[in-house]
């Protein structure tokens, strides 16, 4: 009898102990969460104030004027609405150039990425010792912002689409290379062994053994990248290298009187981005077989 009571009280003690420990843990968790929240809010607020003070126009003035420029553009476009279709036809070749830059850089970058990814995947690499070298190479390609390469190449090669294409292609090679090598890691090595037994060379093994396994996933990532690259190629054009971005910059810096052109380019860009967005997500769903 005495034994059971001590047992019961022991059990109750144990429960309260657990309860206390749990409450203590929750409290510390809440405290940490609270501290992190406070730190985060402090960072956001101080960052906001700092950015506001270092900006030419203040935030609160700007927010009131935010619709001025779109308003002017819309007004002028509205007045010259009959000219818009003709302008859109006029800028269509530049749009094609922007899309070409994106497509070419995705293709070139993708092909480079395939080689780099195969060379840097364990089990597939041609030179297993150099895996680290190729991985670092991809890291560096990814880290260099496109604009840096583009601006330097514009100095050497002059304007036009080629600097932008090379810049985006290099970045694409790094970004896709990493994703591709993650896919490659899941590829089965059995077909490779089979091919090796027949005396296939490394490139034959990769082409016949790996590519058929991973091609749909590669393509799906490449399509996503293509979509990103269209945006990038428009932006690089604005900074000084061919395509519709360059036209936009010219029309924009001309100011009032050319806002109909700005509007036409805005519309073209918007439609293009939405179109390729839809297209690529449609094919991506098809490729990776999403139900």
């Amino acid at each position: 009898m005495a034994d059971t009571t001590t047992g019961q009280s022991l059990g109750a003690e144990r429960t309260t102990e657990i309860q206390d420990a749990y409450m203590a843990m929750t409290r510390t968790k809440r405290m940490y969460g609270g501290i992190m929240l406070i730190v985060f809010i402090a960072l956001m607020v101080s960052g906001f104030m700092l950015a506001d003070s270092r900006n030419a126009g203040g935030f609160w003035d700007g927010i009131l004027n935010i619709f001025n420029f779109p308003g002017e553009v819309l007004k002028e476009a509205g007045e010259k609405i009959t000219l818009l279709p003709a302008l859109m036809v006029k800028f269509f070749p530049s749009l094609v150039e922007t899309i070409n830059i994106a497509a070419a850089s995705t293709l070139i970058g993708g092909l480079l990425a395939i080689v780099l990814s195969l060379l840097s995947t364990r089990g597939l690499a041609r030179f297993p010792r150099l895996i680290g070298v190729f991985r670092r190479l991809m890291d560096i390609l990814r880290a260099i912002p496109e604009i840096v390469v583009a601006l330097v190449l514009i100095f050497v090669l002059g304007g036009g689409p080629v600097p932008a294409m090379i810049a985006i292609a290099l970045h694409t090679a790094g970004a896709l290379g990493k994703l591709f090598s993650e896919i490659n890691e899941n590829a089965s090595l059995k077909p490779l062994e089979g091919l090796e037994s027949t005396g296939a060379t490394w490139s034959q093994r990769m082409l016949l053994g790996v590519v058929p396994q991973v091609a749909p996933n590669w393509l799906s990532y490449a399509l996503l990248r293509f979509e990103i690259n269209i945006r990038a190629s428009a932006i690089l054009g604005f900074v000084g290298s061919g395509g519709i971005g360059y036209d936009l910059k010219n029309a924009f810096s001309w100011g009032q009187g050319r806002y109909d052109e700005v509007a036409a380019i805005f519309i073209l860009l918007f439609l293009t981005i939405v179109f390729f967005d839809q297209l690529s997500s449609h094919y991506r769903n098809k490729l990776v077989g999403k139900a």
């Binding site: 700092l50 950015a51 506001d52 270092r54 900006n55 030419a56 126009g57 203040g58 935030f59 700007g62 927010i63 004027n65 935010i66 001025n68 420029f69 779109p70 945006r231 428009a234 932006i235 604005f238 971005g245 936009l248 924009f252 805005f266 860009l269 918007f270 981005i273």
Partner: peptide, 19 residues
């Protein structure tokens, strides 16, 4: 409406700077 267009619209309202 791409980041490029937003950047242009905003730079009109807020001027150059980090904000």
């Amino acid at each position: 409406v791409d980041g490029l267009i937003w950047t242009i619209i905003l730079s009109r309202a807020f001027g150059p700077g980090p904000m």
